[in-house]
Design a protein around this nucleic acid. Sequence first.
DNA 1: CTTGATTAGTACGATATCGTACTATATGGG
DNA 2: CCCATATAGTACGATATCGTACTAATCAAG
Lengths: 150, 150
Amino acid sequence: MPDDIGALYFRLFNEIGIVEQLSRALFEARLPDGMLTSHFSVLNHLIRVKDGRTPVELARAFQVAKTTMTHTLSGLEAAGLVDMRPNEQDGRSKRVWLNAAGRAFRDDAIAMMAPEMQDLAREFTPEQAAIILPELEALRKIMDARRSRS
Amino acid sequence: MPDDIGALYFRLFNEIGIVEQLSRALFEARLPDGMLTSHFSVLNHLIRVKDGRTPVELARAFQVAKTTMTHTLSGLEAAGLVDMRPNEQDGRSKRVWLNAAGRAFRDDAIAMMAPEMQDLAREFTPEQAAIILPELEALRKIMDARRSRS
DNA sequence: CTTGATTAGTACGATATCGTACTATATGGG
DNA sequence: CCCATATAGTACGATATCGTACTAATCAAG
């Protein structure tokens, strides 16, 4: 039994790893040169959730090292898509604000992706996505909590 | 509707990306220093499927660039866990063979992971895993086919 | 057999991500 | 107020992964 359980989860994480690579390649092929999935994801998060987040909050949301988020944000700032301003409530911290260019970029990117997503939806249906999404969220939360614990 | 579909798939791929990072960190924390998830995954694949695979076959199986697989295999070879021998059927190619140390390493690694997997299984049940695994496989195959097509 | 196109593997440079170390600020206890 | 600890962000080096370019071998067509 333990063997079977291990094998099951290894296969699960293996599939997840492969899908992650495929989706990243798919996204980045549609983004302008130099723009990465990480950039788009941050912009999207700032709209979906709320801008004015701090770099550390963003790093936690995406489960990347804070140095990685610094790097990603510097790219977004250099591209003129976000504005970094000091956090008035904490002198150590900054807040990340979307500007008009950032919002436009995100909207354009989504428009670019839309046909791709529509195609995908014909083979991997929204119903299928809706089945696994909550399970993946649950798995993410469990693993996140486990990580924090240790 | 298109907006909803796009948002659904963005969230899906976002969750997949986060789980991938969390699982990689989880695995690598349990592996000996210098050993990565990619190394373990290749060893595991050589046992699960069959050894004697070529580097290109492995690269395709994991959806990584062939240069990446060359790098991973050179690490495994340097660690003495696999043997690379010429492919008698194709002078351009090599075949990757597990040796005793590689099998032992893989078995040890699985033994190391087992408690972690057992713990995880208490919160994210094998039934849940069994629900999403076939869907993820389907998604992987669809995206893989789509990639090859273009 | 020859030649052009394809494929396997590698060398090399670019870079995204990570971990460590550092500075600056904040916070809590005396 | 001071000091110890914790946290936010960055600098820096290491490296895993990728893309491009190259060599060698195979294959297909004539």
